[in-house]
Design a protein around this nucleic acid. Sequence first.
DNA 1: CATTTTTTGATATACGCCAATCATTCTGGA
DNA 2: TCCAGAATGATTGGCGTATATCAAAAAATG
Lengths: 353, 353
Amino acid sequence: MSGPTLNDVADAAGVSYATADRVLNNRGNVAQKSIAKVRDAVERLGYVRNVAAANLSRKRVYRLAFLIPTGSNAFFNRIRGHITSLADHLSAENVTVEIVDVSAFSVEALHDSIGQLTGRDFDGVAIVGLQSDQLEQPLADLRARGVHIIGLVSDLPAAFRSAYIGIDNIVAGRTAARLTGMSHASGAGAIQTFAGALDAGDHAERLQGFRDVIAADFPRLEILDPILTKDDPAVLYDAARNALHSDPTLTAFYNVGAGNKGLINAISETKGTRPFCVLHELVEHSHMALVAGHIDVVIDQRPDVEVLRAFTLLRALIDQRDTPPMLPLMPAIFVQDNLPADPMNNPMKAQDT
Amino acid sequence: MSGPTLNDVADAAGVSYATADRVLNNRGNVAQKSIAKVRDAVERLGYVRNVAAANLSRKRVYRLAFLIPTGSNAFFNRIRGHITSLADHLSAENVTVEIVDVSAFSVEALHDSIGQLTGRDFDGVAIVGLQSDQLEQPLADLRARGVHIIGLVSDLPAAFRSAYIGIDNIVAGRTAARLTGMSHASGAGAIQTFAGALDAGDHAERLQGFRDVIAADFPRLEILDPILTKDDPAVLYDAARNALHSDPTLTAFYNVGAGNKGLINAISETKGTRPFCVLHELVEHSHMALVAGHIDVVIDQRPDVEVLRAFTLLRALIDQRDTPPMLPLMPAIFVQDNLPADPMNNPMKAQDT
DNA sequence: CATTTTTTGATATACGCCAATCATTCTGGA
DNA sequence: TCCAGAATGATTGGCGTATATCAAAAAATG
């Protein structure tokens, strides 16, 4: 019924259990031809290590760390929530998780935090990263300690992590554009865009995707140059208010970045019709704004799934299993009708698994 | 680190390991006060059974069955794909799965299939059900054998299954309506609806949700009575063709049911502008139609997540664990830009976990 | 009170793997 | 050829649970 054991493998390979064990857990001191015999037997019998038994035996504990930017950013608070909630469930499976707060968008702070990880005794870490070669040294050190590293939401220098989990921001921008275009029913219009900063990769990518689709499929729509907001709600509030008053011909708003609270406030104070409005990331205030009808669509990167994948992937890496196949993560579209329900008065709990 | 063992519980309760074991696996022949002592100790220590060790010991095999309607229905083929793909991964964890084909929409066939399950030795079954009291007897028999039963996609008589996994079809209909409404940019319009049959619960529910939202938020849109199609592509083809030719004022199509191939063919043969078009279930042809621009939106019930949840839930039931919390499943919205990519040339593989 | 029945305790084996020890056999270099 | 070092075999004691057995103790029965 339940597959061959390591004993079967040893027999089939014509070696002792001890040698088979030496090969599988590469403990060294094994002749090449023995290695070959064992590998071959594994292949022939289709042996797969019984992870339950292995973990039971070794009292395996998965010590994980997540490096997450601090601040009032609702999105990352949501990520935090998902991590702790999932960690909770996984504590029964010998997984311990520590969330390390890092000052947002600071290469130096991230550098230091990664450095501090090196002393600790983690098996795997997921890092909301930045693209900077300053990070290469501490990442290399960490990895040299046998710690598995993955990028989460925002990538690290690719050579220094085992995987990256996050959405394709060009796709996210394209999706926003598709819905914005639809909402014009082939009429003309003008779209005011907002972004935190355009040197931040993800914002530029979303805008790029957005432009591509509008240009290709909705030629009667004009995209106004993005107003740069530093993701600051106050800036967004002023900019949106100003745009609403000074240019009544605007037919749509699209903010690729954060700080949506300000935008939503500006809109909610406006009487009469308002532009069609698309934002990113489903958090408490964007959730409420959808329900209230202040905005129309939220494009969400599904942090619940991202966190789940991060756990799954890290465990697979630590177990040295072959990583389960993971398709590119696609952004989800939320309107007011398909919002996730929420038993715990927190609209952001993981939906899957 | 890794919690108290059953030995600790026995000590804390002041009974022997054997007695603690008798209580936990209710083997009988235990005095009430001993049961109380053990239960109390479990509570105090927060003991949770180490499932890995338990399964290892008992050589636990989870024998599962899925009852899925046959036929060329693309949606159920997709469900099948998800089941086998997941079963594949779980075979390493002692899960065996059998997919039992049942003639679609036939109470008698379903009745017989459930009956045949009773002889076999399954631990849990997931059934794409029907609401009929004819099913109660075989379900009761099955359950009497200690088999855990859940409804999948379409529910069973509620008293005879432990849980139901599927989306809220009213929500699905509301979501379709929201996007359809959006696409009219507050202009007027007329929507032709299609349904398989209105006595089938889910179709009626979707239509209901659709009507609610249009009436409440898009009063300038008129909903034409649904054309009944029996989910037959040929019927849909004729009906759609006819509608396209005879009534050029139509601004939208909404099909709550299946058979979309016919609808898509009719649309793709049409020159010039076409109505805004919303369908349900992302399968190969709806996927292609989105890409080709023949339709605009697909509302999907995420069978991958449903199947994943079915496995998780059945295992929890079999282990007599407390079932993990599961939020209501919300339908996903797909446009041509956020379609799941696909490495295996099959657009329908599971996206999560 | 003697006898049955119920309830408990003590103990052993197995599940598949990890980790370690010790003895033995096989190499290859001097 | 002898010997150090490398490679292998044989074996043991867990990990936490399931399951079974047998004897001993406690409770219920007449």
